[in-house]
Structure formats: structure tokens, C-alpha cells
């Protein structure tokens, strides 16, 4: 396997990060770390479709919440089900919704897909608000175990570890795509769809693969959320912050490689946390939006792009 060294390095980095958090032995570090790593996953997921194929998904909250609410449902039905299994289910559900939405709209110009995903976020929220089983508009409480399975310590340690694992999987997938024929096909679609078809690229199938993968990872990122927040209601599960951050971070970091969403998530996520503590939580959510608008206007290649351009 060509990607093996990369995966090993990722695992090593994730291990060091986790070890560091354990050494600090501070639950705040875990809570902040969880959020930043979650945004790396979300940003990477968005970038697989948005950055690689050029199709803009605004319905991140729909996919994210499908993952989160799958866990709520599963937790009510089978309370003993381990979290990784819930993540798989949440990812598959979100992936299916992604492929379905894509199948209906991806034959048209890209903007129609974007508009459809915006509307999708509203409709999934409406469905869940009206679904009493998961608490409807009132929301649902999820009791999380006091201690972590397997590794001991607080449950947040376990959640952080799980999210780190997801992050490794998402980044390895993104990088593998970049270097495979799939990645070249995606780039061809982004640059010129008609020319891609004429060169033998099955554009619709590739776009569906990208939508499925992208939606799937968003769903997986959402699956542990109920255990992280312990109380989930539609207003917080569908918060626009998730969508804006997931789009802003790749655009700020750079959309052309797997590194972009990582850089964006760490920088913006860190800055937001800093502002939340020092100024106020209202200002910290504005940051991603303002930075995103500034970056798309002034530095459309993102931070990673700025360095790459010098190399070319």
C-alpha cells in the first residue's frame, strides 16, 4: 500500500495529541480538542466534494444531524450498542441521503445542487422537529457512561480518542483520493465537466461517489455529538455554526489538498476558542464567517495555496 507510511504518521500524530491531552489531565483540553478535531473531519468531508469536485454543499447540518440523531435513535433502541457501531450507521445513513440528493440534482448546473442542499438542511430539521421519538422540538437527553470503555478515565477521553480515529480515517481517505485516479477525475470535473466527459470520465458516478463519501464522513462526525453534549435539540444540532465552520475552514486553509482543512480547522478553531474565553461567545461565531468572506475575496487559494504557489 502506497499510503501506509502516511497513515502511520497520522496515527503517530494522533497518538501524540492524545497522550499530550492525557498528560495534561484536564477535561477542558479534551472538550476543546474534540471540537477542533471534529471540525477537521467536517472540513475534510466538505472538501472532498467542494474542494475536489467544485460542488458546494451547504447542507452540512443536515448530514451532521442525521449522524447525531441516528445515535439518539440507536441509543434509545439498543442502549448497549458501542459508539463505533453507531458511527458506522450514522455515516451510512448520511451517505445514502447524500447520494439521493445528488442523484436528483447533480445532472443540473452546480448551483442547483447547492440550493437543494440548503433546502435539505431545513427539511431534515423540520422532520426531526416533528419526530417525537427523538424528542421533537424539546430535544433529547442522552446519558453518557461515567467512565470510558477500554481506556479508562473520563468518557470525554474516549470521545476524543474516537474523534481522533475518525480524523485519521478522513484524512487518509482524502489523501488517497488526491493521489488516485479518482482524484484526477474529480479535478477534471471541477475544471471542466464537458471536457471530463469527453475524456471518458463518468462524471455523474464520480460526483455521486464524492457526495456519498462527503455526506458519510459528515454523518460520522455527527454520530458522537449526542454523547458530547448529552442534551441534543434541533436548534443546537442544526446550528448554522457547523455549516459555516465546515465551509470556512477548508476555504481559509486551502481547498486543493488534504492539508488545507487541517490548517483551517486548527487556526480558526483555536482562534474561536481563544475569543470565546477572552471576549464573548457571540463574537467567536462571527469570526469564521468574516474570515471566510475575507479569504475568498483576498486569498482565494487559502493559506496552503499561498505556499504552494511559491513552489510552482
Amino acid at each position: 500500500m502506497r499510503g501506509t507510511p502516511f497513515i502511520l504518521i497520522l496515527i503517530a500524530v494522533a497518538g501524540v495529541v492524545f497522550g499530550l491531552a492525557r498528560w495534561l489531565d484536564n477535561s477542558y483540553a479534551f472538550f476543546v480538542g474534540y471540537v477542533v478535531v471534529q471540525y477537521i473531519v467536517l472540513g475534510t468531508a466538505w472538501n472532498i466534494l467542494g474542494g475536489y469536485t467544485g460542488y458546494v454543499n451547504f447542507g452540512i447540518t443536515a448530514f451532521f444531524a442525521i449522524g447525531a440523531y441516528s445515535s439518539v435513535v440507536l441509543h434509545k433502541l439498543v442502549p448497549t450498542l458501542p459508539l463505533p457501531a453507531m458511527i458506522v450507521v450514522g455515516g451510512v445513513m448520511a451517505g445514502i441521503v447524500g447520494v439521493g440528493t445528488g442523484y436528483l440534482t447533480l445532472r443540473l448546473r452546480g448551483v442547483y445542487f447547492s440550493i437543494a442542499t440548503l433546502a435539505l438542511a431545513v427539511v431534515v430539521q423540520t422532520l426531526i422537529t416533528n419526530w417525537d421519538f427523538v424528542g421533537g422540538a424539546r430535544g433529547a437527553y442522552v446519558l453518557r457512561p461515567r467512565t470510558a470503555p477500554l481506556i479508562g478515565g473520563g468518557y470525554i477521553d474516549y470521545l476524543f480518542l474516537i474523534m481522533l480515529g475518525l480524523c485519521v480515517a478522513a484524512l487518509a481517505t482524502a489523501r488517497a483520493i488526491e493521489r488516485s485516479s479518482l482524484g484526477f477525475g474529480f479535478a477534471a470535473i471541477r475544471d471542466d465537466e464537458a471536457a471530463a466527459e469527453a475524456s471518458g470520465v463518468p462524471t455523474l458516478r464520480l460526483k455521486l461517489i464524492a457526495t456519498g463519501l462527503s455526506g458519510g464522513f459528515m454523518g460520522m462526525a455527527g454520530a458522537p455529538l449526542p454523547f458530547y453534549v448529552t442534551y441534543l435539540d434541533p436548534a443546537s444540532g442544526f446550528s448554522l455554526n457547523y455549516a459555516v465552520n465546515a465551509i470556512a475552514m477548508p476555504l481559509i486553509g486551502g481547498t486543493s489538498s488534504w492539508l488545507g482543512p487541517v490548517v483551517g480547522a486548527v487556526l480558526v478553531g483555536g482562534l474561536q476558542e481563544y475569543l470565546r474565553v477572552t471576549i464573548s461567545s457571540a463574537v467567536n461565531v462571527l469570526v469564521a464567517g468574516v474570515l471566510m468572506v475575507m479569504f475568498v475575496i483576498i486569498a482565494p487559494q487559502g493559506i496552503v495555496g499561498l505556499f504552494q504557489r511559491k513552489r510552482r
Binding site: V56, L240, V244, A248, A282, V290, M292, V293, P300
Partner: peptide, 23 residues
């Protein structure tokens, strides 16, 4: 570059306006 970044621009405006009004 209307599609990816142009759309994101308007999405950003939407978000900034919403948060601004909340503030």
C-alpha cells in the same frame, strides 16, 4: 470564480447578517 467561492461569499454574508442581527 462564481461557483465555489462566489457562492461561499453569499453564504458568508448570510451568516454574518444573521449573527450581526442576533448581536
Amino acid at each position: 470564480d462564481q461557483s465555489l467561492r462566489g457562492l461561499s461569499f453569499f453564504f458568508g454574508l448570510l451568516f454574518i447578517a444573521e449573527v450581526g442581527l442576533i448581536l
